[in-house]
Simulated assay, not measured.
Amino acid sequence: MPFEIALTDDVTLRELTKDDAAALAHGYARNREHLAPWDPARPEEFYTEEWHKDRLWAQVLENSTGRALHTVLEADGEIVGRLNLTDIVRGAFQNGHVGYWLDARFTGRGLMTGAIEALVVHARDELGLHRLQAATLPHNEASQAVLARLGFERIGFAPSYLKIGGQWQDHVLFQLILHG
């Protein structure tokens, strides 16, 4: 059964589907300026339905094999955010990476806190993961506040960790232990 949770009366967190290309492209295009300081440099094609159609199948496949859980936040048929659990490693590690963004019109409502909280419960209770990790730019205080509210602890600092906005940038690393 696909992962789906009503976060509020108007916003649902649900598993990404192969039919989300147009809505996803529109969500990224609508938030292009808002996301630019936090995202990798994107080619112009990234903001088109065709670009996403060509790539969604891989993310849907990752969901079906348990290697990831790619989700979207949806409101009235529009994608207003993404929350992804990627790089799931089994065996002795039982770990996954959390990444997310939220539409500029929906910030400040506690939606991402609720979405990540739902993902944490699912990762612990349904997926059996032991640990989640996340990374933020050092100046992304809003994202760090969301993680702190949910009990993620700062565990380190990674110089030149990800190429954001065309430059290798440092990140603050966080983890949440799901089974003590």
Rank of each mutant, 00 (worst) to 15 (best):
L176C: 06
A23Y: 03
D39G: 01
V146S: 01
R42N: 08
Y47G: 05
P43G: 04
T48D: 11
N84G: 12
K163H: 00
Q144C: 10
S160G: 08
L127H: 01
R32P: 04
D76L: 04
A145M: 05
L16E: 01
R90V: 00
G128Q: 07
F93Q: 09
V146L: 04
A158V: 08
P159C: 05
G108M: 12
D39P: 00
G156C: 10
L129M: 03
R55S: 07
G81Q: 04
T12R: 15
A123F: 06
G180I: 05
A25K: 04
Q94L: 10
H130Y: 11
D170A: 07
Q94N: 01
T12N: 05
L150G: 00
E153I: 14
Q144F: 03
V146I: 14
N84T: 14
A92R: 09
T8K: 11
L129Y: 06
L150Y: 09
N140D: 13
L56E: 08
G165I: 03
H70L: 08
N63S: 05
R42D: 02
G128I: 09
A58N: 01
A25S: 13
H179S: 14
G114L: 12
R131E: 00
M1N: 13
A123Q: 03
A148P: 06
R124F: 05
P40I: 06
A158S: 15
N140A: 10
G91P: 00
E153A: 15
E141Q: 15
S143G: 11
H97Y: 09
D39T: 01
E15H: 03
E4Q: 15
R90H: 05
F106M: 14
L132T: 00
L137N: 07
H52N: 13
D10F: 12
Q167Y: 01
D76V: 06
D19V: 03
A104Y: 06
A104S: 15
D54G: 15
H52M: 13
E15D: 09
I155W: 05
V80P: 03
A104G: 13
L178W: 08
V80L: 11
L127C: 00
F157S: 03
G81W: 03
D125E: 14
T113F: 03
T107I: 15
M1S: 14
H171N: 01
F93C: 02
R149A: 13
G77F: 08
A22D: 02
L7T: 05
A22R: 14
L129K: 01
A75M: 11
G165S: 00
E50C: 02
A123C: 09
S64D: 12
V72H: 04
A92T: 09
R55M: 10
H130K: 02
A21Q: 07
A123E: 09
D39E: 15
R82V: 13
A92C: 04
A41E: 12
T107F: 01
W57S: 12
L16G: 01
V80S: 07
F93L: 13
R42F: 02
G180M: 10
D54A: 13
D103Y: 08
H122A: 00
G27Y: 08
R109H: 10
